[in-house]
Design a protein around this nucleic acid. Sequence first.
RNA 1: UCCUCCGUAGCUCAGCUGGUCAGAGCGCCUGACUGUUAAUCAGGAUGUCGUUGGUUCAAAUCCAACCGGAGGAG
Length: 376
Amino acid sequence: MKFKIHKQDPKSSARTGTIKTDHGEIKTPIFMPVGTVGSVKGIHQRELSEDIKAQIILGNTYHLYLRPGNEVMKQAGGLHKFMNWDKPILTDSGGYQVFSLSDRRKITQEGVEFSSHIDGSKHLFTPESVVDTERIIGADIIMALDECAPYPADFDYAQKSTELTHQWLKRGVDYFRKTDPLYGHKQAYFPIVQGSTYKDLRIKSAEFIASMECEGNAIGGLSVGESHEVMYEMLDIVNHVLPQDKPRYLMGVGTPENILEGIALGTDMFDCVMPTRNGRHGVLFTWEGTINIKNKKWEKDFSVLDEQGTSYVDSYYTKAYLRHLVKANERLAAQIAGIHNLAFYLDLVRFARTKIEEGTFSEWKNEVVKKLGRRL
RNA sequence: UCCUCCGUAGCUCAGCUGGUCAGAGCGCCUGACUGUUAAUCAGGAUGUCGUUGGUUCAAAUCCAACCGGAGGAG
């Protein structure tokens, strides 16, 4: 993997760049659709590629390890072949599941013991075993096992948790460097900054993560309940410590506004379930603000879905029709809304790149953010 | 003509040994959702309990008549 910065915004930390992988280039800043179990929910790979123009998508190690499991994944020749997606893939390690499935796991120095949410069976994830599984899945970028601490976390807990994540990271990096990819393409290993909402911890963590000299770095443990102000503050602090010449990935974020602010603070990569999940639940993101298509006000609105939208669904379907589909609980609703929202997110970062290249990002961002937060 | 059963929220119904009995599910309206245990979750509105009388301190609940519906017997 290679990262090259093209242009730095004069008034913010925003920058454009290119990540080169063996499965093609990624233009940054980028948003990465989430495809947890080898599928971006409700979206065909063809739509993902042709309509949404996704450059890279996510998979999840915990979920793919449990199902279909490493045997199937290995025989399939890795996730790219299995799901027939030949562009880049990034896999999360299961660190988020340490947080979201906290009642089903036990953390030790060694790793995390999970009881499967599918059949209750017990499994041990260690920094090393996660690398093994991620080798088998074969993503271009693979994440280190971390603990995503809950919010709020008291200082003592946050400190111990961050230290544990660092110890795991050391082991994970060592193991990663001793092992080889399985399918002939290179893989990059990204460590993850933790530290909860404590500045000192965040700085120490970012310094430790930077010292590992990996090809890219991630910021985790944010957008777990803290205010946006705190999130931006932590992100700003961390991004000033993490190396300039490597991509920075803010995990799990966020709203369109979060992403633009994150870009302004020097972040290059984002992922979030929001466009797909909220889409399934009837929420559409647009340049003018957010639409809850279930609202009665759209019942007889036969205008197109989104006049400023660039995906084919935006002009192909009407608001009244999508409202009907959502209310009737039709699968097609999730597909249409998912395509629209993901295409919007990819448009959002594409515009951001253009504005950075033109040197007008900051002004543009401040104007756009005002509208993005509105409720239509 | 007679007999039986039924009439409670928009829908399907629970409550009917009289006193937190005005309820549920669905629908409707609204909100939440940030490295997906989530086509999920949460909240809200709505009723002259068929009608009219009666018994009682108190009736959706007991009695009578009537109206409407279903079934049965002739």
